[in-house]
Each structure stands twice: as C-alpha cells, then as structure tokens.
C-alpha cells in the first residue's frame, strides 16, 4: 500500500549530522514531534522524559538517544491483544466522530473484515441526517455482503439503533456495527442524541460486548484531543480508528491522546477500498512519525 512505501525508507536518515546530544539536537526532535501533530504539551513531556533518561543512563551517542526515544513512544502506543476481543465476542460496535472523518467507510471496511473472519455482521444506518448517508452505507453493506438496517432521512437515530439491536438479536448476528452521523463535539444536542443511542444499546442488549470507536482523521491537529475528550464524556471510548493514513499526515495527535486519555489506536485507514483497514502497528506508526523528507531545507 501507499503508506508502507512511505514508511520503509525508515528512520536512519534523521538526526544525522549530530555528533553530540546538545540543545540543537533536542530542538530537532522537538520540531519533528510538533510537525507530526503531537502538540506542544506531549512534545515537551516527551523531551523532558528523554532528557532525564539520557542523564540517568549517561547516554552520549545521539543514535542511542534517538533509539531510546523511538522505543519509548512505541511502547506507549503498543496495543494489547485483548483490544480486539470484540471481533470474537457477540458485540455491538458504536462508531462515532466529527464530520467527514471516515466513519461510514470504516464501518464498511470493518464489516468486510469481520465477514471474512466468518462472523455474521449486521450494520445499522443511524445517520439519518446527512444527505444520502443511508445510500452510501447501503453500498458498503452491499460490498461487504452484510445486512443493513436503515431508517428514513430525518428519523430518530436512536430508533434505528433500537430496531437494529432487535434485528441483530433475532437473526443471531455476532457483531452489530452502528454508523452514526458526523457531529462536532461542541454541539450539545447532537451529543445528547449520541448519549441516547448509547443508552438504548445498554438497555436493549445488556449482555453484548461493547466497543465504541472514535474515528479521527489523521490530518487533524490539536482539536482531535478535544474531540476525544468530549466524545469520552458521552460514551466509554474503547479505541480510536485513525483514517487517511495513506496521505502525508503523521497522525501524531494520537500520541497526545494516548498520553492524556489513555485511549489506544486500534485500526488505521489507508485508502478508500474495503481492504484498506489495518490493525494498528505501533512500530510502523512511530517509524513513520520520525521519517522526514530528505530534501527539506534547514
């Protein structure tokens, strides 16, 4: 895929030209992290920790220091094996996020993936707001070869979820994937609507394994932190899907979110076809974060 090509050239070229660990060296690291969208706070924390470790371990070589840094972020971003339990359980997956990040596409991709694993999947079209959202999801259901429960444009999304839960139960489905409308996290009424959907699932399907995925566009900057926080107030977020990783954005905000909110990235989107969803790989992600264009000035 496109991302892999970006990644393989690796991290060896960075921090070249440094013979000692000095202020310039740390500044270079700071620049790389900020340019990767980690944000000021996470970047400062990382650098402070690094400095402490360098001192503690009496590290003199920039290369060793670099490795230390990379390993610690990798460690932080590593996903536990249990993170994917919902794929095996009888589960309800609620997919939420702001407008246009890739929720519907992710639901389609996930449906295809789970179907391939032999799971019986039902998807709920709980975006009854956006023009043609239902048609879009129907096409994905069709591609994945799974059933979709929909509602009329303008219908109450919670009622669609209600119907979908009933249908998933009666059909003995393994996984119910719920697509929801894009909503900005600062819109009270839309967040309330989401809370209601969440409540319906709790009430109607109490023994289902619950997974709530927040979809984040990898291109997004610091606002993603605010998104994750505020969606977290409405539902128990269990993971993040970082989409559009096939572009040039590094998705570094996920590191800030992991530090501050402890929410792991579980999948990445790397394109627009049904195969373009991968399990998150901390090694690849961090390597890509530290890969800078060789031809950049300075």
């Amino acid at each position: 895929t496109k991302t892999r090509d970006n990644i393989v050239s690796g991290i060896d070229s960075i921090f070249s030209g440094f013979s000692s660990i000095d202020d310039d060296f740390y500044e270079e690291i700071e620049e790389i992290l900020i340019m990767g969208d980690l944000g000021v706070k996470a970047t400062e924390e990382i650098i402070e920790n690094l400095k402490a470790k360098v001192k503690e371990n009496k590290i003199k070589e920039p290369a060793a220091c670099k490795q230390l840094l990379i390993d610690s972020i990798k460690e932080q971003m590593r996903v536990e094996d249990t993170a994917y339990r919902f794929e095996e359980e009888k589960s309800v997956v609620l997919v939420i996020g702001v407008n246009g990040v890739g929720k519907t596409t992710t639901v389609g991709k996930l449906a295809g993936k789970l179907k391939d694993q032999g799971r019986k999947v039902v998807i709920a079209a709980a975006d009854t707001f956006r023009a043609a959202a239902g048609d879009q999801l129907a096409e994905w259901a069709n591609r994945a070869g799974v059933e979709m429960i929909g509602g009329q444009e303008g219908a109450d999304p919670a009622s669609v979820v209600f119907d979908a839960v009933a249908s998933a139960k009666s059909k003995g489905a393994d996984v119910l994937l719920c697509d929801t409308a894009g909503r900005l996290h600062n819109k009270k009424n839309l967040m309330e609507e989401l809370r209601k959907m969440n409540r319906i699932i709790d009430r109607e399907f109490p023994d289902a394994y619950r997974e709530t995925l927040v979809v984040l566009d990898a291109t997004t900057g610091q606002n993603a932190l605010s998104q994750a926080k505020q969606f977290g107030e409405v539902a128990d977020i269990t993971g993040i899907v970082l989409t559009k990783m096939d572009g040039t954005a590094k998705g570094g905000i996920a590191v800030a979110i992991q530090s501050e909110l402890n929410i792991p990235v579980k999948y990445i989107g790397v394109g627009e076809t049904i195969e373009d969803l991968q399990k998150f790989d901390a090694d690849e992600f961090v390597n890509a974060l530290f890969k800078t264009d060789g031809n950049e000035e300075e």
Binding site: G36, D37, V98, T220, G221, G247, T248, K250
Partner: peptide
C-alpha cells in the same frame, strides 16, 4: 477542513 493540523501546508 479547519481542524487540519501541521499537514495543511503540504496539502
């Protein structure tokens, strides 16, 4: 998208 981060310059 107004929420775009550092990559806005590349885009």
């Amino acid at each position: 998208d107004a929420m775009t981060g550092q990559d806005a310059v590349n885009v």
